[in-house]
Design a protein around this nucleic acid. Structure first.
Lengths: 214, 214
DNA sequence: AAAAATGTTGACCGATCGTGCAGAAATGCT
DNA sequence: AGCATTTCTGCACGATCGGTCAACATTTTT
């Protein structure tokens, strides 16, 4: 007997469908817990409780705490890498850098936990993802700095240090994610609203980029 | 029998002298461990091992893990508070802000662990020091922002957001402490030397303050 | 319908957690 | 010298840690 339009069975079976749902849920909850407690301080029990699953199930889908953690870190790293596509030699410098700041502030708002996980990992001297830093982050950073320095050489922007400008953009944009709690507390305990985020974007671009323009 | 010039007994007894030495050593080691692992991830055993003491001894001098942690956080908070004295209404704005950035970058180099402890605590939503945030940090921040905004009103600097400028200074200066490991890795695995720190100070001031000058 | 593959879970392991506590050791005081 | 106080530390506790595993449930394949 064939049941028409049974969405659960048309394309693929329940198993693979649930597998994706569950792994996504675990990854999301793991990001939250790792963000709050760091790798060492986080526990599989806490992740499992947040996801509403027995902890054995976490280990079933991700073979270890470290493997799960690497997946979480890898996600935010990829997202940030894509965001930096704006910094390309042929783009107009101020617009490119402004777009990059906008995108990173959007990510600070929508994915603060990813940023916190990264911050925790670096503060702890990257015990798990040092290979990321030495290979991928390294070449990726060098390329972006080269673009900024080239803009300087071409006389398109004021002679500033590409490296320190990039670090300042990272620092400032990620601050609005990592220090959300501090910012919220200083904002009468209320999260920034749409208008305040717009104001933040404008202010950060103003502060960081008015020294870059000729 | 009186033993002359016995430095251990001249001014005060061994006990009070050792007490100060030991508490200072524990505080220093605790800062290192809390910086690396956060409150939850840190353990008294690790602190004790680093200090070369049995863990019972840690509890003897500081009644609990949380009490020890509060002492560590309080120290860096006081240091940062004093550093902001430069931001006073009667000072010349660019020099005052430049001095503040210099001081905070000096602290990033000399006391990176304090900065990391603070970062960890905020990332974790200040479970231990929320009272600091709501009372002391709050009024202290409002006062500094008022000074910067007054400079704007007086026409001494360009009209920028005092709050976001302050946040940007915090973010950038603390980035060089909290993300030391990343910066070191991107610097061929070598810590920044004196010349590079001088370059950092100049670059950060250039980037953050050239948008502030009239 | 039987067999195979996949998903789920509680019980359990050795290690480590924070901390209380008794008593030993050292020091201060009279 | 003798007592009081302070310093120091080993041991023990219940809780939690990451991870293994066997038993069981469900789904897919044959």
């Amino acid at each position: 007997m064939i049941v028409a339009n049974d969405v659960n069975k048309t394309v693929r079976g329940n198993q693979s469908r649930n597998r994706e749902e569950i792994t996504a849920r675990i990854l999301s909850c793991a990001e939250t817990i790792f963000a709050e407690y760091g790798f060492t301080g986080a526990s599989i029990s806490k992740i499992a409780a947040l996801a509403g699953l027995p902890k054995s199930n976490i280990i079933y889908y991700f073979e270890s705490k470290e493997a799960l953690y690497r997946r979480v870190v890898g996600e935010i790293f990829d997202i940030w890498r894509d965001a930096a596509d704006a910094i390309a030699i042929d783009n107009e410098p101020i617009k490119a850098l402004g777009d990059y700041i906008d995108t990173k502030l959007d990510l600070a708002r929508t994915r603060p936990n990813g940023s916190k996980v990264w911050a925790n990992e670096i503060i702890q001297r990257a015990p798990i993802v040092q290979d990321y830093l030495e290979v991928e982050l390294r070449s990726w950073t060098d390329n972006r700095i080269a673009v900024i320095d080239a803009w300087v050489t071409q006389g398109k922007i004021r002679p500033i240090s590409g490296r320190h400008l990039l670090y300042s953009i990272w620092a400032t944009t990620q601050h609005y994610a990592d220090f959300t709690h501090q910012i919220t507390t200083l904002n009468d305990g209320k999260e920034l609203n749409d208008a305040q985020w717009a104001e933040t974007k404008a202010a950060v671009k103003d502060i960081l980029l008015s020294g870059v323009s000729l």
